[in-house]
């Protein structure tokens, strides 16, 4: 019996169990601290839709053994470029949304291609290099946001100053086009954002289907054993490049969906640390540095976003101050440290 429990803990991972129990505790506490249960559920669903695709974007790279994509910001930048260009072009509604995605994919392919070239050169040290590639690209783009010749009055500073604003409103363009698509209202407090969830499901299906194709399976082989892949005549570097491009493209789409739901495009230093929560969510879902699946994405995003939604409201009601930021930092980074210390080195 004891062994069985130990086995379960080993399989499920101690931190995941702790976090799951913590979450259950939070849910039990909700009625006692005067928070509506249904609004909390609603928040979690909305956040799930917002963040799901960003987390999904990590999958291809993990599958080919490139590790956790700490350079997620590259995809985010491509997405932001798509978003601001679509607004500059005055595209509204679904047209605007899909124009943004189209442009974003274009940039993401270019960025992903170059990023892939680099990551193939630094096999074995992808994560640390990726982190700093992500950081430096965000800071480089900060310079670009100041200098690029955007004209739309909704995006540039109204008085003096040049360059784009730090946050750009998507209202009037494609704010909530996806969220409000086929929206289902349950009771007074729950709005089910069918569009966002369906879109997430669609992309998830695509990724799942992709890994069933010939290229997809070849990628999995590359990830599990490079030498074997080599001897099978699989072009390892090419497969890795494709996975990097794919990850970057999905991340670009992910950030646009995020902006669509959130209502704002955040520029400059805002994307700097966006990779970490996404990575943490994936790990929380049971992924490791070398292995991740769609299941991990769904469980991870759900757990992570539930914690992020529930803790601030419940805890601040108990101790009367906002600890959410601190808890977010500890939770997401702690999860990543835990995962990094548990793995054996991925073969190069």
């Amino acid at each position: 019996m004891k062994k069985k429990i130990q086995n379960i803990i080993e399989n499920f991972g101690l931190p995941r169990i702790i976090i799951f129990l913590f979450l259950v505790l939070l849910f039990i506490l909700t009625p006692f601290v005067g928070i509506r249960f249904d609004t909390s559920i609603n928040d979690i669903i909305v956040r799930f839709g917002m963040n799901g695709i960003l987390v999904l974007s990590l999958i291809p790279m993990v599958k080919t053994g490139c590790g956790l994509n700490f350079g997620l910001q590259l995809g985010i930048i491509a997405g932001i470029l798509g978003a601001v260009i679509s607004i500059e072009m005055e595209m509204i509604g679904f047209t605007g949304f899909f124009t943004a995605i189209g442009i974003a994919i274009f940039f993401a392919v270019i960025f992903g291609f170059l990023y892939g070239l680099l990551l193939n050169k630094v096999k074995g040290d992808e994560m640390v290099v990726a982190t700093y590639v992500g950081f430096s690209s965000v800071s480089f783009m900060s310079i670009m946001w100041l200098m690029l010749p955007f004209k739309s009055p909704n995006m540039i500073w109204a008085y003096g100053g040049s360059g784009l604003r730090t946050t750009i409103n998507t209202k009037g363009y494609w704010f909530h086009v996806l969220t409000d698509f086929l929206k289902i209202k349950i009771g007074n407090y729950i709005f089910f954002p069918s569009g966002t969830i369906l879109f997430f499901a669609f992309l998830t299906f695509l990724v799942w289907a992709f890994f069933k194709t010939k290229i997809g399976t070849a990628m999995i082989v590359v990830g599990s054993n490079t030498d074997y892949a080599n001897s099978c005549g699989i072009n390892v570097d090419k497969m890795r490049s494709i996975s990097v491009i794919l990850s970057t493209v999905i991340a670009a789409i992910g950030i646009i969906v995020y902006q669509e739901s959130f209502g704002f495009i955040q520029l400059y230093t805002a994307p700097l640390f966006m990779a970490f929560p996404a990575v943490a969510a994936l790990l929380l879902g049971g992924a490791t540095v070398g292995k991740a699946s769609i299941k991990n994405v769904i469980i991870g995003v759900f757990l992570f976003q539930s914690i992020l939604t529930m803790t601030p409201s419940v805890v601040s009601n108990i101790i009367k101050s906002d600890m959410s930021e601190t808890i977010r930092i500890i939770l997401s980074n702690g999860m990543i440290v835990y995962a990094l210390t548990r793995i054996t080195r991925v073969r190069t």
């Binding site: 040290d125 808890i327 080195r345």
Partner: peptide
């Protein structure tokens, strides 16, 4: 415990401890 990836771990550890 993270031999071979000390740098990325050290870096994440710094973030984590910032929360603590």
């Amino acid at each position: 415990r993270a031999k071979g990836r000390e740098m990325v771990t050290g870096f994440m550890l710094a973030f984590f401890m910032n929360g603590i």
